[in-house]
Design a protein around this nucleic acid. Structure first.
Lengths: 205, 205
DNA sequence: AGATGTGAATGAGTTCACAGCT
DNA sequence: AGCTGTGAACTCATTCACATCT
C-alpha cells in the first residue's frame, strides 16, 4: 500500500478525533462535522479515507466506532508493540518510564546501555542490559521497535546494531540524520529542529 | 518575512551541514557539493537561500563560515534562549536535565509544577516553583520559551498560562492539539504520531 | 435529501535549465 | 569556466464541485 507521509500523519489525527467522539458516544459523524469540530478539511478527510475503500455511508456519514477500529487496523494500532530502549541516559531513562506508563499500543520491554555502571539497574519492570546483549534482548522480548536515546555521535552505530538485532522500526531521539535501510524505517523525534523553528519566530517580532 | 515551514526546517538542516564543514575547516562549498555530501538538492539549497539575498558568489560557491553565521542569525540561533519547563513529571524532569546539558542556544532557567510535593525540589541549578508563580518565574528569569510537559488534558490550560505569563513561544510535548494564538507560536514534539507512523510500517511487511 | 467518493481545477513546492555575474 | 540566482516546467497535494449512492 502506497500512502503519502502527509496522509499517514492525518490518519492519526482523524483517529484521535474519532476516539474523542467515541468516548462522547457519538454514533455517526459526517466529514463536515468532523472538519468543523477539529479544524480539518472535509474534502481532505473524504479523500484520505477513500484510499481504503468505501468507509462511509452516502447521505449519512461515517459510523464512529467502526471507522475508529478500521483506522486503528490500518495504522497497526490494533495490537501491542514492544519497544527496546537503547541508551539509558537522562532522556532514555525518562522515556522508559514515561512510555511505560503509556496505555497506548506501545510499551517498553527492555533497555540497554554500554555504560557498565548502568547495566543491571532496574527501571519499571525490566533490567538494563549491556549493549552487547542487544540482539538477545530483542529476541527474548520480541521487541519490534528500537528507541534510540544515545548521544548524537553514537546514533548511527546503534541504529545499525538495532537492524542487526532484528527490530522492524526505529524511533530516533538523537539530533542527527541517520542513514537508514529501507527495511527498517526510521522516525525522528526532533526536539532540536522544533526549537530552532521556534527561535526563528522569537526573533521575528 | 514570510517563509514556509518546509523551507524553515531545511535551513536548520543546511546550518548543521555547514557547521560540520566549518569544523572540518572547509572554506567554501558549492550548492552541488553540499547536496552530494548531505543528501540534499542543489537547486533547492540555492532557492531556499535566495530568500535572504545574494548569499553566494557566482562561479565560486558559498563561504562556509559566513553562510553559517548568516543562517544562525536568520534562525535566531546567534543568541541564547531561556526556557521554562511546565510540568515536572518523568518527562519534564528528564528534559530539564537533558536540555540543561545542551550546549546549544537553548537552556532551561526555571521550572514549575502544580504538585506541591514537587515544588521546592532542586533540578540542576534551578528550583521547581508552583504553577501559580509562573508569571513571576518568567519575568525574573526572562524566559522566552515555555516547554509543556504536562499531561494531555492540562496542556491547553497551561499553554494559556504561559501566554499570560509572557513567553514568546511554546514547545509542547503533550500529545494533543493545542489551540494557539498567533502571537505565541507553538511547536509540537510528537512522540506519539511518530510512533503511530512507525506502527503503520511494522504492519506493512 | 443529504453526504460520500472522485475527476477536474487550483495551489504549493520542487526540479529544470539557463541567463547573468565573478 | 563555473556556480549562483531565478523564471518556466513539472510534480505533488489540496480544494472544488458534482455525479452517485443510500
Amino acid at each position: 500500500m502506497d500512502i503519502s507521509p502527509l496522509t499517514l500523519n492525518r490518519l492519526g489525527v482523524y483517529r484521535r478525533a474519532l476516539r474523542e467522539l467515541e468516548r462522547a458516544e457519538v454514533p455517526r459523524v459526517s466529514s463536515q462535522e468532523l472538519a468543523d469540530r477539529f479544524h480539518l478539511s472535509a474534502a481532505q478527510i473524504r479523500k484520505d479515507l477513500a484510499h481504503f475503500g468505501e468507509l462511509g455511508i452516502r447521505g449519512v456519514g461515517y459510523e464512529v466506532p467502526k471507522l475508529t477500529r478500521r483506522l486503528s487496523e490500518i495504522l497497526g494500532l490494533d495490537r501491542k508493540h514492544r519497544m527496546v530502549v537503547v541508551g539509558m541516559g537522562n532522556l532514555g531513562s525518562a522515556l522508559a518510564s514515561y512510555l511505560g506508563f503509556n496505555t497506548g499500543s506501545f510499551y517498553v520491554v527492555g533497555a540497554v546501555d554500554n555504560d557498565p555502571t548502568k547495566v543491571g539497574r532496574k527501571i519499571g519492570d525490566f533490567t538494563v542490559h549491556s549493549t552487547e546483549e542487544l540482539a538477545q534482548v530483542v529476541q527474548e522480548t520480541g521487541a519490534e521497535v528500537g528507541v534510540l536515546t544515545v548521544p548524537a555521535e553514537a546514533a548511527q552505530e546503534n541504529y545499525d546494531l538495532l537492524v542487526q538485532a532484528g527490530v522492524k522500526g526505529v524511533l530516533n531521539f538523537a539530533p542527527v540524520r541517520i542513514e537508514a535501510v529501507p527495511e527498517v524505517p526510521l522516525k525522528q523525534v526532533d526536539l532540536r529542529s522544533q526549537l530552532e523553528e521556534l527561535a526563528f519566530f522569537l526573533t521575528q517580532k
